[in-house]
């Protein structure tokens, strides 16, 4: 008799390990490196984040002199959040970047 049979039959009665994703969401743990957000109020325009970003994803807007993050290039390493002296950049738990039109 195949060895996996008891396991397979037990799985029929168990709760599935997967979830119905768009309806049921699993919260990422604390410290997850999701979408970085810039708080322009706290930003002191030191531009350290631009130098430290390995993907060169951070650009400066001409009018406000504050950084903005281009998510198309961002690799979510969290270096900018780490280096920011004013803690103006934080990593959120947001990980869904596609949108429905």
């Amino acid at each position: 008799m195949p060895r996996i049979l008891p396991q397979v039959l037990r799985n029929l009665l168990r709760k599935p390990a997967t979830v119905k994703y768009p309806q049921v969401r699993v919260e990422p743990p604390k410290g997850y490196r999701g979408r970085p957000v810039v708080d322009p109020e706290r930003c002191i325009s030191c531009w350290l984040c631009i130098r430290t970003c390995p993907a060169r994803a951070i650009t400066i807007s001409k009018e406000t002199k504050k950084p903005s993050i281009w998510l198309g290039r961002c690799i979510f390493c969290g270096e900018c959040a780490e280096v920011c002296p004013a803690r103006a950049i934080t990593m959120t738990k947001e990980f869904e970047f596609t949108t429905l039109r």
Partner: peptide, 8 residues
């Protein structure tokens, strides 16, 4: 590490 695969 804050991410599932790419640990950084």
């Amino acid at each position: 590490s804050g991410n599932r695969v790419t640990s950084a």
